[in-house]
């Protein structure tokens, strides 16, 4: 049985074609085959959000996405958030307002925050808390993350 298949998709605007196991996790393929190590593994069960990426405009946990479901998709990882040297407003706010500490949840948190502001440009605190509810952080107690999101859209 040959369970390797060709999967074609775009990552951060770049077309990719890879031979992969159909059930391989997107997370592993990003990190190991495409060297996009900004996407982190925290729990492997969709609980912590460290592996968050955006697929076709929606955030997903890349640890729960098998490669067979990636065919034809457009993916944005943390590496694709900034425009060259120009950081996204969310990234800059996380630096300026203490939204990142150890940094391991940060890529996923930034993507969740970018997605939130794409859907809801002026979220309330309630919206922010719920928008980020799938992303766990053990360092910050979340306060500075909320503040970073607010500062990002008020900029």
């Amino acid at each position: 049985m040959n369970n390797r298949h060709t999967v074609e998709f775009k990552v951060n605007g770049e077309a990719r074609s890879l031979e992969v196991f159909s059930m391989a996790r997107l997370l592993d393929v990003l990190r190991e085959q495409l060297q996009l190590t900004g996407t982190k593994e925290g729990c492997g069960e969709g609980e912590c959000g460290a592996c968050t990426v955006i697929i076709d405009g929606q955030i997903v946990n890349s640890c729960l996405v098998p490669m067979a479901q990636v065919n034809g998709c457009e993916i944005t990882t943390i590496e694709g958030v900034a425009g060259g040297d120009q950081l996204h407003a969310v990234q800059q706010a996380f630096i300026d307002h203490g939204g990142a500490q150890c940094g391991i949840c940060t890529p996923g948190m930034v993507l969740a925050a970018v997605d939130l502001l794409n859907r809801n440009p002026e979220p309330t605190e309630h919206d922010i808390r719920n928008g980020l509810a799938g992303n766990l952080c053990r360092c910050t107690g979340y306060m500075k993350i909320f503040e970073s999101v607010v500062r990002a859209y008020k900029k």
């Binding site: 996009l36 190590t37 900004g38 996407t39 990882t77 943390i78 590496e79 958030v81 900034a82 950081l87 990234q91 800059q92 996380f94 630096i95 203490g98 939204g99 990142a100 500490q101 940094g103 940060t106 890529p107 930034v110």
Partner: peptide
């Protein structure tokens, strides 16, 4: 944070 930029860009 000194290493902030590399943390927010992955």
């Amino acid at each position: 944070r000194k290493e902030g930029r590399k943390k927010v860009t992955g």
